[in-house]
Design a protein around this nucleic acid. Structure first.
Lengths: 226, 226, 226, 226
DNA sequence: CATGAATGAGAGTTCATTCAT
DNA sequence: GATGAATGAACTCTCATTCAT
């Protein structure tokens, strides 16, 4: 709701703009490499210790920096996590693309795309944590609107192949969008139940439920085109 | 040999047992009222500020107490949130029961039970937060196993009417349980997408999607019995 | 050095003065019994949990009281420990007296008295703690001068039989006092080294060292008289 | 896989290893100075207020810091006291070494070493407190085993010259160790009686008693060699 | 760019003690 | 005499962030 103030120390990002000559370009490349190192350290720390026990200190330590240095690359802890989430979504997209490569078609393509999405989070619970972290209290945190936009776009991208596959099955665009949304919700719900252990209460397996939902969806897609 | 380590402060609850004479009863009632006042303050603080910014200090202040006094009523911050969640689940159950009172039957009963559940959380997003709070990092927190058990039971209770209604529609028990789990997941997913604003990306309304899912489920229930 | 202010709530003690008629006497007896119950609880708690983990709350709980009630019997935590120490010294005296009962004479009497003292503390390290507690920072705590006086007297009493035995061996009074003091110091030193585990550094047993010191002392006593 | 849990803040000490260039050396020197300032403040506070009333807050205040800053130099309150005790033992050793410098020999050497030890604590009662602090309830506190080891070693060091002197008087090693232990115990006992004022009860002076014990010991040493 | 010392605010928790009832 | 609710002051410790160097 409330837009956060402009980042205190926008660091290397801003310099990219004024970079033109070779020297500046090299500097920029170096900076990116170092930024990446911080990100790697943050991811490792987070995957190992979880969100709550991962402090800036810890990340800096793992990256071979002192705490202050982190702020050369990220304006705040939240911004760092935003970047981490961005990178997580990039991995998600990669996974979805890989699943499509064998150029499956028809229902198989829907299955491939949707399952890749589900599996990614099923296998990497911490990535799901990441997605949730910035919505503690169910409201976005210290993300700049631009970053928020970027993240939304990447998420949308990861879902787009599924939507396309549905439409290529003859489902009209509006319905495909609706079904995609429902599928996304179902997926998220199953993942949450699974990761919090709540699903055990029902003695069910999230994967079975996911498969079942997917088959029903594909059946509906077949009907819709008629 | 060793006496239990300490009084484990939250005394008032158990004293009901030895309460018999009017004076003790009145004392107990007073204590309950005060405990409730703390709970109210905690809920208000939490609904207003969110989990993270709600400290024991803040709660105490709102309840008109000093921080230490809170510990006469709750053994720890987690215990307090446990109680808050328990009470939230109680309200949820109440809501579900109310929805069933007009003694609907058949598909209408499924609709009534399931919708009550969905609506409760749609209308009270903070109660959803509450449910999530204790699973930061997707792992249970400092809940005692007993409390965790209690909470699970209450959640299960809130879902039971829906399962019963499905079975009374002729759906076999195992399938009803499976469908209930899927419905629960779908509901949670929709609520999360809705409350985090992610659903706007798809220009969909969580309520429409919920209704649609519900109708499909009811259709399946009709088929299942044949 | 600095005399503490008069006890805030001298409680039952003061009433003993104005007690004269039978009813008051009975009241007083009751109060003493209850006071003893508190003391018992305090001792048990302290022996089990140690000084630091024994709170007024804990003591009250064990005595079947609420915290406030303790202050009817003791003006402060320190006063309570003072009483506890007094009672500990009483037990010490009892032990010394018992050791003398078989009416040993000569060197055997010195041995009996001194060893009883040593053994009491060797076997009951917590009683040694008690003695030290009120001298944290090596300075008396919230003891009233009278209580301090009483405690000193009881300690003196427990040592007196040893002094007497030394004198009955022919040692002149001034020397006996000096030797007693040295013996007392030696005993305390050994107990401290023993209880803190420091004596292990030297691979020695406190008991051997004590015995050795004692024999030397007795030898000196034999010489002194000539 | 798992990187050590955290930087475990007290960084400066270890950095000496990678310090090589002048700048790092200067940084290190500065850090040491500041650490010393904290230690000085802690010692002053403790000597003035005693252990119990000396909080991290108080120390920080005296050192001109905020409480959090202390944790850059010491990982915990116990660690700080460990350092304080270590430094106290270092001073003790220094004192003992100085007493030996005039290269006394024979009985004089025993006297010099033992008396230096005794005098150090007689003149600096707070250093004795320090030694006792970590044994509240007569049990070691939150010391790491390594630190405990270090402290034991330093204490042993301070006593070693006395043992050596005894052996150079012809006393066999095992007996010298036993006598050293006894002497140490006697010393501790006298110091405790003296500092707690208990010795006044006996109208004795700790120094006289110490001298007397020492002369007896030296006499025994003379005999032992024969 | 990086350091690293330091801040400052705050966290949860404990406890002896008081006092109206 | 006893209750028990409440105080109030303290406690150790953590952490994101800042800034002079």
């Amino acid at each position: 709701m409330s837009t956060p103030p402009a980042p205190a120390r926008p660091a290397s990002a801003k310099r990219a703009a004024k970079a033109g000559n070779p020297r500046q370009l090299r500097q920029q490349a170096l900076a990116d490499v170092r930024r990446e190192r911080v990100l790697d350290a943050a991811r490792a720390a987070f995957f190992e210790l979880g969100m709550e026990k991962t402090s800036i200190r810890e990340i800096a330590h793992r990256a071979g920096y002192t705490p202050g240095a982190i702020y050369s690359y990220f304006a705040s802890k939240e911004a760092l996590y935003g970047a981490l989430l961005g990178e997580s979504l990039a991995r998600l997209n990669e996974r979805v693309q890989q699943a499509l490569e064998p150029s499956a078609a028809g229902p198989a393509r829907v299955r491939a795309a949707a399952t890749a999405f589900f599996d990614f989070y099923r296998e990497n619970p911490r990535d799901l944590d990441l997605g949730f972290y910035l919505f503690q209290g169910m409201q976005p945190r210290g993300l700049t609107p631009e970053l928020n936009e970027t993240l939304n776009t990447r998420l949308r991208q990861a879902l787009q192949p599924t939507q396309d596959a549905l439409q290529s099955l003859g489902m009209p665009a509006p319905q495909a969008l609706q079904e995609l949304t429902a599928l996304f919700a179902h997926t998220v719900g199953l993942l949450v139940l699974s990761h919090t252990g709540r699903i055990r209460m029902f003695r069910q397996a999230s994967q079975d439920l996911f498969d079942k939902y997917l088959e029903q969806l594909i059946r509906r897609a077949g009907t819709a085109s008629g």
